[in-house]
């Protein structure tokens, strides 16, 4: 475990906690894409299949449980909670996320580290995570006044992947034959997708103006 990876995991944790707190306290999911939340729940479900069969460390197990619980809780809030569901921006959250699940599944079948169910599911989850933010970014472009918590959620979600890239660089130079092309390429693609969001987010923060993403 290196500092970059720990910082990355903590930033990822902060992003889901920020979102869960926002939804739980103000009972609103305005500006939040249900599709991105569903994709993330699927990412964790597909990636953490080995949760009970392969013990890495207490930290690893606890974090997996937290990510699984938080992502499914957020989806539950947005679908089932009588107050929160009414604040869901259904008519603007129209990204056809089914169109990205299938290609990621096919890619997982073609490009994986080992052709076993668990490894295919793992690769699928890596590819899916790379594009899971798309519905949320599209929704942000359509949302007029983006509330701070949602913007912070997306920012931390992007920041965690940037930190993971530093983690991979560090591990590449400190651990012999630490090579994970699948994670590396998908992780870089994922980070690039946040590019313009980061640009406008930092600009709005610097000029102290409301975040606006150009459509």
């Amino acid at each position: 475990m290196n500092l970059f990876r720990l910082a990355g995991d903590m930033t990822h944790l902060v992003s889901v906690v920020v979102l869960l707190l926002k939804i739980h306290t103000i009972k609103s999911c305005a500006g939040v894409s249900l599709k991105t939340q569903e994709l993330y729940a699927l990412v964790f479900a597909a990636r953490y299949l080995d949760l009970f069969v392969h013990f890495v460390s207490l930290y690893n197990t606890v974090m997996k449980l937290v990510f699984l619980a938080s992502s499914f809780t957020i989806v539950w809030y947005m679908r089932r909670h009588k107050i929160v569901r009414r604040t869901y921006d259904k008519e603007h959250d129209t990204f056809r996320h089914h169109f990205i699940v299938l290609p990621c599944l096919v890619l997982g079948l073609l490009l994986n580290e080992k052709f076993t169910f668990r490894e295919v599911m793992w690769a699928f989850s890596i590819y899916l995570e790379a594009v899971a933010i798309l519905p949320q970014l599209v929704l942000l472009q359509r949302t007029r006044n983006i509330d701070n918590l949602t913007a912070q959620y997306v920012f931390f979600l992007g920041a965690y992947r940037v930190l993971y890239i530093f983690n991979w660089i560090y591990r590449y130079f400190t651990e012999p034959h630490f090579v994970h092309w699948i994670s590396w390429i998908a992780g870089i693609v994922q980070t690039l997708l946040y590019g313009d969001f980061f640009y406008y987010y930092i600009l709005s923060w610097k000029n102290n103006v409301k975040l606006e993403l150009p459509a």
């Binding site: 990822h12 690893n60 990510f67 793992w122 993971y164 983690n167």
Partner: peptide, 10 residues
């Protein structure tokens, strides 16, 4: 080692 062929990252 076992952890080598498994994914130790989240």
């Amino acid at each position: 080692s076992a952890s080598q062929d498994h994914h130790d990252e989240l």
